[in-house]
Write a protein that binds this DNA or RNA. Structure first.
Lengths: 149, 149
DNA sequence: ATGCTTCCCATTGACGCCCATATGGTCCCA
DNA sequence: TGGGACCATATGGGCGTCAATGGGAAGCAT
């Protein structure tokens, strides 16, 4: 019964309005609601120019990684800088929209539209063009981020 | 309910005014208030050109770390010098601002703006450009490592 | 007194909360 | 099977509130 609806799947592109808001696709909101997620945790992807969005569990997964290191080591310090300092909490408004901040725009190159991409246990925000190119590259088995010429 | 919002997360940049004051982001002030922290303890980060800010528990955590090391080791000596010799107490004014002292400016290179960086149990003050560069460097360093489970 | 700090109040710009409209799809029923 | 009512989603915008900032004036110390 819940085999499909409890994961973030497929993708959709929505427009950012004059106030910088964009609607999260209803399917993704349904998954969030089913998981009881109200506070969204956003983090820069480690490989692609995309922002990962998920519930508190997404943050906790990264924190477990940090916890395996000596808390005063440079490694733990660097990871915390990324995970805690680079992460952002967000809430959706009553209509299920989120604000596209400069933090998101700068890292993704997003301008007027956002592509929401399901990643099973979280979803991502992409600049539409960048997403299509990354998908095409992945289809051809090219894993590098370098642009085709 | 607020299981995650009670930690210092994300980052924000605010401007220093003509009197040398800067507003601590409201989210961070909320965390301080929730923890009942009124006196802030500030010390230099062990790795980065940043000032760490937290409640008395921050000092205690560093002291425990020093206690675990051989008291005559160079590392314990260095930490004690930084923690005990370089620490400073601060208070926020009624509007939630703090004074950016020369102690902070000299160590961080902060000029006109301050980037506040969440570190889970404390937060840090960075020169904005230095923060972006350190984050980019940390992300590069993570590329070769495995993703967290 | 002079410089610096602390307290207080004013401004403004951003964000959250609310309601309105459009658009596309689905379901029902004739 | 086609038309139309109905509904959910995406989108637009008004408006109040609050955070960030600026600046005056009163205390404090040197």
């Amino acid at each position: 019964m819940f085999g499909v609806m409890n994961r973030f799947l497929s993708n959709a592109t929505n427009r950012i309005d004059a106030k910088g808001r964009v609607s999260v696709p209803a399917l993704f909101r349904a998954v969030l609601a089913q998981r009881g997620v109200q506070e969204l945790y956003c983090l820069q992807d480690l490989v692609f120019p995309a922002i990962s969005v998920g519930g508190p569990d997404l943050l906790e997964r990264y924190e477990r990684q940090i916890a395996t290191a000596d808390p005063f080591s440079p490694e733990a310090n660097r990871m915390s800088l990324l995970v805690h300092g680079g992460g952002v909490f967000m809430r959706l408004d009553a209509e299920g929209r989120l604000m596209v901040t400069d933090f998101i725009r700068d890292f993704t190159g997003i301008g007027t539209d956002v592509t929401f991409v399901g990643r099973s246990d979280h979803f991502q925000l992409w600049q539409p063009q960048a997403f299509h190119e990354a998908q095409a590259a992945a289809r051809e088995g090219r894993l590098s981020m370098s642009r085709p010429q």
